[in-house]
């Protein structure tokens, strides 16, 4: 078990480092010249050259990477040229707000999605099962940005229950805050629920058809015990992996949702930094997303290992 944990930790660290290299490599190809961005488009060439030397933009790319990465390691992501602010606190605030949005949505998705999936599998071909099947098609076919339009149209436009966009901090009162966050959360949950319930359903179905479930029935156990004690326990293992996968999808989702709802989180910041070619913010943001995802996967792996006796207890013939 400790060996397994160690290897997972090393792998998570490797992923973050490799992603940082990838990000840096891609953004270094960016044609937008940083010096021109700072000095304006019509700056004299010699001034541009001087700034490039000062910023180290003429150094070989590995040297630039090392400079950036070693600073990033201690939490210094530089100063955004565009906003004239240090990147780290700016990204930090944004990711906190995104985390609130994504966290609430994730809890809903996990609880409701897994619940629906289990119900659908147990009552196969029942109403819940058919409902999940239809919802699955909708969930896969309707993109987040269209869900958000529908939500806005219905709840902000038609019913006028919710604001169409914007964000209010918690210190303006819990209800004001909640009022603004309902629509984006609802959209995210709609868009991602089906994925989780569908995969939960299939792993539950597989467990229900396995020989050990038949063996449990052969012991005369009531169906409830068979499902909860024998099938669900084993079906949860693949579901954990699915949920971790969904953290990644959710982070992709917030990019779109935050843009539509003008929610000042990391997603909107990233889109904005791309549109305005704000290199340092972009690098920091994507690196953080990758790090969060790597952590989510690590957590899933550890939970998986802890729940799976084959990993938790090595092979030892008693």
């Amino acid at each position: 078990m400790t060996g397994y944990v160690l290897r997972r930790l090393v792998f998570a660290a490797f992923v973050v480092v490799a992603v940082s290299m990838l990000i840096f490599a891609i953004t270094s190809l960016l044609p937008a010249n940083v010096a021109y961005l700072i000095l304006g488009q019509f700056a004299p060439p010699e001034q541009v050259r001087a700034l490039e030397i000062k910023l180290g933009l003429l150094d070989p790319i590995p040297v630039q990477y090392w400079r950036w990465a070693s600073a990033a390691f201690v939490g210094d992501f530089g100063v955004s040229m565009l906003m004239d602010r240090p990147v780290a606190p700016m990204v930090g605030e944004a990711i906190l707000r995104s985390a609130v949005l994504a966290g609430i949505s994730f809890v809903f998705i996990a609880v409701v999605g897994v619940g629906l999936g289990v119900l659908a599998a147990v009552k196969r071909n029942g109403p819940v099962d058919h409902g999940v099947s239809v919802a699955t098609y909708l969930g896969i076919a309707v993109p987040e940005f269209f869900w958000s339009i529908v939500v806005i149209l219905l709840f902000a436009g038609y019913f006028r229950w919710l604001p169409a966009s914007g964000y209010e901090p918690m210190d303006k009162g819990f209800w004001t805050w909640a009022h603004h966050i309902v629509a984006p959360v609802m959209t995210l949950v709609f868009a991602h629920l089906a994925h989780v319930s569908r995969l939960t359903r299939s792993s539950m179905l597989e467990a229900m058809q396995s020989p050990y479930v038949t063996a449990a029935r052969a012991k005369g156990l009531p169906e409830r015990t068979v499902v909860l004690r024998h099938a669900l326990r084993n079906a949860m293992l693949p579901t954990i992996t699915v949920l971790a996968l969904d953290v990644g999808r959710l982070m992709g989702g917030i990019v779109v949702i935050e843009t539509v709802f003008s929610y000042p989180g990391l997603g909107r910041l990233l889109v904005f930094s791309i549109q305005s070619r704000d290199l340092l913010t972009l690098q920091a943001g994507i690196l953080l997303v990758a790090a969060v995802y790597a952590l989510a996967n690590l957590a899933a792996d550890l939970l998986y290992a802890w729940l799976n006796p084959k990993i938790r207890y090595g092979r030892s013939v008693a």
């Binding site: 020989p211 038949t214 063996a215 052969a218 024998h230 729940l307």
Partner: peptide, 24 residues
């Protein structure tokens, strides 16, 4: 019939590798 499984009738399956629940 369920109540008879165990006290009256019992079945041993072919494949001991899959008939035991791996997580109990």
């Amino acid at each position: 019939r369920r109540r008879m499984r165990g006290p009256k009738l019992a079945l041993v399956f072919q494949d001991p590798f899959t008939a035991l629940n791996p997580s109990l």
